[in-house]
Amino acid sequence: MVMAGLSTKPSPAEIRAWLEDVPDPEIPVVSVVDLGIVRGVEWEGDELVVTVTPTYSGCPATAVIALEIVEALRRRGVEKVRTKTQLSPAWTTDWIGEQAREKLKAYGIAPPAEGARCVGDLKSPIVECPHCGSMATEQVARFGSTPCKASWRCRDCLEPFDYFKSF
């Protein structure tokens, strides 16, 4: 099939690179690739199938993310795109890459503690203040401005900040 502006099918690696420009709708400094939401890119005949995994089960951004992926690829000239939802393996914050963690910190959000995935560990992760780097921080509330964040504050610089919950 002929696609507008494209003479050959772009490779999955190329498409992945394009998706690095698609921001998360709630936290625009990180991309959907950074967050580990894109689980697969493959051609099924002349249709491109992008497999995405939802982050939090109640995240209202999930539908928007799928829509933005389709729109970004259409702008690149891929006309037939479909997104597929994959529930397993369940998304974990351990899939958020090093670079994305730095971007989150620079944006004022403390990145999720790594590997803290059982209840006992969730209670007291050591969280670095994204503003001043102090480790003297405390949780204000388990829930925050979006389903993925908790409210914290720094006891040194006294600034409140969001902590990206570790799951």
Binding site: P54, Y56, S57, G58, L87, S88, P89, A90, T92, V119, L122, K123, R142, P147, K165, F167
Partner: peptide, 12 residues
């Protein structure tokens, strides 16, 4: 597997 992750947070 998906639901368990948030529910343990609810229980906490």
């Amino acid at each position: 597997g998906k639901a368990d992750k948030v529910v343990r947070y609810h229980l906490e």
